[in-house]
Amino acid sequence: MEQVEIPTILIRPSRGWIALKLGDIWEYRELLYFLVWRDIKVRYKQTALGATWAILQPFFSMIVFSLVFGKLAKMPSDGIPYPIFSYAALVPWTYFAGALSQSANGLVDSANLIKKVYFPRLTIPIANSLVGLVDFAIAFVVLLGLMFWYGVTPTWRIIWLPAFLLLALVTALAVGLWLSVLNVEYRDVKYTIPFLTQFWMYATPIVYPSSLLKEPWRTVYGLNPMVGVVEGFRWALLNTKTAPGPMIAVSAAASVVLLVGGAFYFRRMEKTFADVV
């Protein structure tokens, strides 16, 4: 039998703030993979329309917004046809809202696992925020189709797109971490999530452009990380003139602060999960 180094585990009460132990999550990357794989599989097995859902939700929102805000309210859209202006924002937004509510409910939904098996608990919200990427990819293909339809040609800026997607992921995970911990302790959180995402959507330039704001307020607006994501998507795909530089930097910084804080808070509260959830 091959003799490998035997790990030693020390178990004792922890006090105060504890290390994130990101190495542990790397150790358990296969579990992370299987949790994501399970959720994707189950999602497409259980729903009759399967992948269609990924398109329907942002697509119908786009139609409604185009009628209400585009046609009736004559909302400015930075010179872009309103349907594609709103859809380019709705694709990352739909992913974000889904990932947020998935990861916020993740710990409670996985109560059975948490009470029976050890693994780094951070795996759960991380997996939850990754699952939606499949739906995102499908909705994104439709976005490319719409761009073609409206004759929008992407430029070299499109290479920045993954960075904006990552920003959406990090933001969803960051907020998901905070909410998932609170959700273990207070089940009320579950009921506030739909309200929160709706409110947040109108606080993000989805139906309107951020160019309505003058500088420096536009940069301050970037404190809502989703502002950076949505304007970043439009900038990278639709060549809008709202050059996102400082605003995106503010969004990225806000998102990272939320994430780091959330991760430490999560680790600190982690020890009580199995007893409380």
């Binding site: 020390l10 178990i11 004792r12 009460p13 029976k116 098996v117 050890y118 007893d275």
Partner: peptide, 27 residues
């Protein structure tokens, strides 16, 4: 010992990889 919950006092040292079967069919 399975690290599912934390002790309030005392300590335990375990040498080796731990597998726990607290309930079959978890997950």
């Amino acid at each position: 010992l399975a690290r599912i919950t934390e002790p309030t006092s005392g300590s335990a040292v375990i040498r080796g990889r731990v597998g726990s079967l607290l309930e079959v069919g978890t997950g």
